[in-house]
Structures are given as C-alpha cells and as structure tokens.
Nucleic acid binder design. Structure first.
Lengths: 144, 144
DNA sequence: TATTGTTATACTCTATAACTATA
DNA sequence: TATAGTTATAGAGTATAACAATA
C-alpha cells in the first residue's frame, strides 16, 4: 500500500496530526479550567447550549455509559448552568437543557478557544481551502 | 483578522480538525484497550519503549503532576511491562524503563494503530506532501 | 535549602450491575 | 417485557499537600 506506516512521509504527517491533537486537547482543557469546568463538563455544556438533550442521547454523543451522565449533569445543575426538564411525550425521559447562565458560560468558553484563530491565521485563504479539502478527503467526508 | 472564527472557511477547518482529534483519540483508546491498557498507560509505555526516562521527566511529557506517575508506573510494573532502575549519577532519581515484554507490547500497540494508514491512504503522495507542509506552517514547525 | 520520588487525600470520569418508574 | 434514568460500587487519572532520602 502506498501510505504504509513505514513510508517516511506518512509517518511525518501522522506525527504532525498527533501534535495537533495534543495541542487541541491542551487548549480545550485550559479553556474549560478558566471557567472552573472539566473537559467533559465543558463538552456537555456546549452540547446543551446548542440544543436541550435527553440524558441517554448525551451519553451516545459522548460515547460513554448513560449512568455517568447523571453525575456530570448533577454537577452542572448544582452550579446553575443546566436544568432537567420533563419530556411531555414520555414521562421516563429527562431532558437536560442549558440555563441562561449556562448559555453565557458556553459562549464565553467558545470565545476563549484560541485554537481556531492562532494557528490558522498563519495560512492564506487559499491554503485554508486546500487544507479543508484534504482533511475532508482524508476523513471520507462528502464535500457537500 | 483574516482567519477569525466568524469566517465560515476557518470554522469549517476547525470542525474538521475537531473530527480528526475525536477519531484519533477513539482509535488510540481502542488500540490500548486491545492490550488491556488505558490510554495513559499506553502513552507512558510507548514513551519508555523509546527511551528509559526518570519519573519526573515522564510527568513533564504528560503535562501532569509527578505524584501521578508513581501509580501509573506501579500498574505497568505490576504487569511486568516496565521496571524502575536507579540512576548511577543521582540516587534520588528512579529511571523507568520498558522491559523486553513491554517493548513487545508497545510495538504491537503501534502496529494496531490503523489511523496512520486508513485515512492517509486516500491521499496521493503529492497531496500528503501538501498536507504535511500546511500542518507544519499551521503549527509553526520549521521545515526541518 | 532544594530536589526527587512517594504517600495520603479528595475529586472527576469511567464501566458494570442492580434498582425505580414508566412504557 | 423493555426502556430511561438513577444509584451503588470499583478502578483509573488528576491536583494538592506533606514526607523521606538525597543533593
């Protein structure tokens, strides 16, 4: 195969992606910590800021067991960032939703994520377009 | 600034990088689990397979507190994958090193990381070269 | 005095299993 | 019976503070 791991070029690209991954995570955790949130709490809050979501659906998004979501939402709820609402159609379901304050925190969190700007600012628009297309092809994403 | 977050193109690239990060992590954890290791344990083992390393240096590489390394190395040592050696130059220092078995596990772990091949195989050599250069520029890495 | 590794402690995230209330 | 959420439990990673051995 052309892109085997022994290929030095492929190896180099994999190393670079590893660096991107490490930097992305470090920045995300750091941004979350600025708002006294863990990475997981920040992820859930960001999710709920977009759209109220049943507990089970949150677990699917995070790819973890549903039982874990209870505690995570508990901690966010204790801080007034999230609330549980009943589902009118199914009384078993609880829908977690960001409060007004939670949406504000989510917005500030997003704003403090510098990863978007700093590194990409070094590329021209044309280069960013090429990067986008390569990443899309690499990930097998349809170019809409 | 040209590459602000409100720029749709930049937003698209950031989303793609987020996808890469998520996929990379999922694959890494999965590969580690195949060898009954956690992600952190796999990371430390991979590190030590390259080079024996003092405890404190491991903490620096992982960007965590040195006290945590004790337990992680304990668990790897209990499974015979790692051993502690004295430092001849400084009797305070303990150097963690992968055992023969540990190096074997690290190698099999690396081999089971398909992330390198699968996605990049979809790009031509020329495209991989362009991707490498863009990532290097983005990360502010000198082109060797 | 300063540094290295460790211990003790507390918190969070994680999976598993059992429970409850609904469906 | 099956499903949604919860509780209980145990293991792992993390930070903080205090400690022993060594520099």
């Amino acid at each position: 195969m052309a892109a085997s791991r022994t290929d030095p070029l492929t190896f180099e690209v994999v190393e670079l992606i590893g660096t991107v991954v490490a930097r992305y995570h470090a920045e995300y955790e750091q941004a979350a910590a600025k708002h006294a949130l863990t990475g997981t709490q920040a992820r859930v809050l960001a999710l709920l800021a977009v759209e109220p979501t049943p507990m089970r659906r949150i677990a699917q998004r995070l790819k973890c067991e549903p039982s874990n979501i209870t505690g995570i939402v508990d901690r966010l709820e204790a801080r007034g960032l999230v609330e549980r609402r009943p589902d009118p159609n199914d009384r078993r379901v609880k829908i977690a939703a960001a409060t007004e304050e939670g949406r504000g925190t989510a917005r500030r969190l997003r704003d403090s994520l510098d990863f978007a700007r700093e590194p990409l600012a070094q590329l021209s628009e044309e280069e960013r377009r090429v990067l986008r297309d390569l990443l899309q092809r690499m990930l097998g994403v349809e170019g809409r």
